[in-house]
Structures are given as C-alpha cells and as structure tokens.
Design a protein around this nucleic acid. Structure first.
Lengths: 170, 170
DNA sequence: AGAAACTACGTGACAAGTCACATAATTTTT
DNA sequence: AAAAATTATGTGACTTGTCACGTAGTTTCT
C-alpha cells in the first residue's frame, strides 16, 4: 500500500534538479566524494589518512619541510598539520625536530617507515590519477583547473566586495 | 640575518606549483574557501549555519520534507540532518513531527521564524550567486557543472573499478 | 639594547562531512 | 500470519577543515 504522493515526489525531484545546477551546492558533494574515495584507497593500500598521505608525498618530493611549509603547499591551515604530525611521528612515519637556526620552526623529515608507507600507497594513487585522465582530455583538465582557480579567487574575496559590489570603485 | 635557503624556497615553490595542477589537491582548498565564504555571509546576514541555510531553502522551495528527502536533495548523509534538525527546532526555525501515515518518517516544516530567517539570508546569498555569474559566462558555468558531474561520477565508482581497471570487461 | 612587531607553532572549540551500527516501523516473501 | 528484508532515523566515533588566542622565538625600529 504505497501512499505515493506524486506531487511531492515531483517537488523533491525539481528541487534536486535545481540544486544540481548550483555550483555552491555541487562543490561540497563532489569534494565529499573525492575525500571518501581517497580515504578508501589510502586506507586499503597503506593504512594512511588523507592528511598523512599528502604529507608523505610532499616530503618525498621536496625533502624536509617545516610545518608552515607543509601547510602552505597543501593550502591548509597550519593547525591541521600541527595536530597530525605528532601522531605520524608516533607511528614512526616522520621525525620532527626543532630547527637549530630558527627556534620557532619544526623540521619534519621522512623516516624509512615513512618512505615505505609512501611507496605502498603511491601506485594506487597514481592509478587513480591516471584513471581520471581517461575521463577528461588534457584540455578539459586544464580548463577545469582554470575554473577552480577563478572560483577560488572569487571565494577568497572579502565578502563586502561581493555583497556591496555596486559601491566598489573598480 | 635572513638565513635564506634559496634552494629550499624553490623546492617549496615547485611543489606547490605541482599541486596546483592536481585536481585532487585543488578541490579541498576550493571547497574550503566556498564553505568559509558561505559561513561568513550566512552568519552575518541571519546567524545561520550552512546546513541550516540549505534546509530552510529547500523547505521554502519544496514545502514540507522528510529527513531523507532533505538529505537526498542536499546530497548529504542523513545523519547530518538528523543532528542539525533538533537544534533548528529548538531555535524555532522548523517544526518536526512523526508522519502519521508512515511512522518511520519525520516531517519537517518551516515555521514563521524559519521563513523570516530565510528571508533575511536569501538576498545576500542571491547576491553571491549573481556575483559568481559575473565571473563566469553561462557557457562556462554549464561546462563547470558538467565537469563536476563527470568528476563526481568518477569518484563514486567502486574503487576496485579504478584500481584494477585492466581486468574490467567493459 | 630594549621595545614593538612579526612569525611559528600548539591547542580548544566548532562546522561539515563520513561510516557503522542500533532500533523501530513498513513492506515483501513464503 | 510469521519471517525476512527493507527503510527511516538516531547516535557514537572519526576525519578534514576553520578560527581565535596564547606562547615563545626572531626581526625590526628607535
């Protein structure tokens, strides 16, 4: 005895369809899917979290880095790293030591275990990036990144510039 | 006495540049910026959170909805709504009642206060959407959403399809 | 040199998501 | 009709991310 309210179903469909065209509502869902997929792959391949993976990758590519540098590369707040790193150290993935030259900084370096974990995860992550390249042409990817660039620039504007744009002298 | 390690600076720059082209690493930062901007506007305009705003908007457009329907429209997990709604009820923004017809469901409806809060926030949010349309042409926006569509479809694939694609019989 | 300003990091509090699992109500099967 | 499967919701635990603020170390200014 399905009490089917066709009108209601249609309303939901309409609303969902409408949201489908809204960039601001698509972005969270797309990112959430990305994060979830990344988490699954990393968990399975090497028992790593996304933040851990990014950190190992950056250290592999750029050598030792400070917390601030890691945060800058990852476009994230330093506090995220500040919290994740001690745990990574405890797991033996990285070493941390105060910079002798500048006592404020902490120098983070890969350990052998960190390098090994990176190597366990890297092939799967590479396969994922390769698979993405099968879905988009190089031109599309370039355009996509360009759109994200422009969107991010827009989003990082002071909100007054957006809300009271007419008063801007531009 | 700036101990300037030019080589190191260059490494960081290189690494950041590299990440700049990586969709998987741009997405989190772009989304974070979007969320932050939305939070600021909503907080200032009506003291609302993003989840609250979405919910008020959906209810305004589609009438009363169940928790599942709200989650579906928002492409989010039902638990997010399940947690947010009681607080919204306490604030007087929505009413919740068990569906008499199907005792599993909860019917969520706007209250007058909810409608008022929606009306306070809506103009700013509309201005933001309008401002976005000044940054992208309609064609670009369509393409952008299409890319997000395709990316999301890719991301929601079972990870085995991605990691062992060669074995797929497709 | 001492004061003032700046920088790096740690940490508490919160928002927005996810998953897994429990429970109760409904629907489908046998 | 009873059993089995499905569905809607609630809830604990966790990840990723933000901000604000405190503290300590460095740099700049006077």
């Amino acid at each position: 005895m399905a009490k089917y309210d066709g009108d209601k179903v249609e309303k939901v469909r309409q609303r969902r369809l409408h949201e489908e065209q809204n960039l601001f509502s698509r972005l969270p869902a797309t990112y959430a899917a990305s994060r979830k997929q990344g988490q699954q792959i990393l968990q399975r391949a090497a028992g790593l979290s996304v933040v851990e993976w990014r950190t190992l990758w950056d250290l592999s590519e750029a050598g030792t880095l400070t917390i601030r540098e890691l945060a800058e590369i990852q476009r994230a707040d330093h506090s995220l790293l500040s919290r994740a790193l001690p745990a990574m150290q405890k797991k033996g993935l990285v070493s941390m030591q105060r910079d002798a030259g500048d006592g404020r900084q902490t120098i983070v370096a890969l350990t052998d275990a960190g390098r090994a974990a990176y190597k366990r995860a890297a092939p799967s992550m590479k396969r994922r990036r390769d698979a993405l390249r099968e879905q988009f042409t190089p031109e599309e990817l370039t355009t996509f990144v360009d759109y994200l660039d422009r969107l991010e620039a827009f989003l990082r504007q002071p909100i007054d510039d957006i809300l009271y744009e007419k008063e801007r002298v531009n």
